[in-house]
Design a protein around this nucleic acid. Structure first.
Length: 264
DNA sequence: TACAATGTTTTAAG
DNA sequence: CCTTAAAACATTGT
């Protein structure tokens, strides 16, 4: 489920716990989403620690604690963060629960494609270093984007937009939305994007990220009514721009939706 | 039933 | 070492 804006929304669900102590940590040590994490150290360090702040980067979230503790969370396909009352009984898929006096912070994920990472130490966690330029930052430039497209020039543009090293936070629906706005066919090899199109693509990548954050990211609201988003899964969905039937196929390993007349 | 689901990671081939 | 494509991961809903 979660892409850039949904991740930002879920990150904020734990903000009510900032500057408050973790009284207890509940987790299933063998849960798949804890793979590779030192769960003993996680429990030892975070029990009694204070949740200080958090940040989102693409689809990743970083939570900072006192005692130099860090959690890195990824929601995978079905992960969610939410705050529940202090006495909340953990459900079957509530794999990590941080108990605080006033609420319980819950990470739930039925499919367990998500991930929990833990790090303690003076230095920033290795998984928080060397991150790609955020799309809405000044470091995300058109020339850097074009370099990335050329580097993966034989891949379908749809598949390249899904690569987190180049477009952190973009997922399946955002990629389709971007390509629909830019008027480019999702299967077009990246190297065959012309200069004018690249300029348009760059603008639309940033626009979709900004608007998604403003709508979905703020309160899990709907994206603007005229977006492809609202038609893409509907049987018999039509292009919001010209009314022609939307097409669907596997491109870049994912179900892709596009308008055959707007996107060439 | 069988298939597909807003995502990575691993594996294998070129 | 680099790029690309496909399978694997686990669960739920249609």
């Amino acid at each position: 489920m979660p892409e850039l804006a949904e991740v930002e929304f879920y990150r904020k669900q734990w903000q009510c716990g900032w500057r408050q102590k973790i009284l207890a940590v509940e987790l299933h040590p063998h849960a798949r989403l804890l793979r590779g994490a030192d769960t003993k150290a996680l429990r030892r360090t975070l029990t009694g620690a204070v949740l200080l702040s958090s940040e989102a980067h693409g689809k990743q979230m970083f939570f900072r604690f006192s005692r130099n503790g860090w959690l890195g969370l990824h929601l995978g396909m079905t992960g969610k963060l939410r705050a529940e009352p202090p006495g909340h009984a953990a459900g079957q898929h509530d794999h990590l629960v941080l108990r605080q006096r006033r609420q319980s912070l819950v990470f739930t994920d039925p499919r367990q494609f998500g991930r929990v990472r833990f790090h303690a130490g003076d230095t920033t966690p290795p998984w928080r270093a060397n991150l790609p330029a955020p799309i809405l930052s000044n470091q995300f430039t058109r020339s850097a984007m074009e370099r990335f497209l050329r580097r993966h020039g034989r891949m379908a543009l749809k598949a390249v937009l899904l690569m987190q090293d180049g477009f952190p936070g973009v997922g399946n629906w955002m990629a389709d939305e971007i390509l629909w706005r830019a008027g480019i066919h999702p299967a077009r090899p990246s190297a065959r994007v012309e200069a004018t199109e690249a300029k348009k693509l760059f603008r639309e990548v940033r626009f979709v990220c900004r608007e998604a954050l403003r709508t979905v990211g703020a309160d899990f609201g709907d994206p603007p009514a005229a977006w492809l988003f609202h038609r893409r899964w509907r049987h018999g969905g039509v292009c919001p721009r010209d009314g022609s039937a939307l097409l669907r196929a596997q491109i870049g390993g994912r179900t892709t939706c596009w308008c055959g007349s707007c996107q060439k």
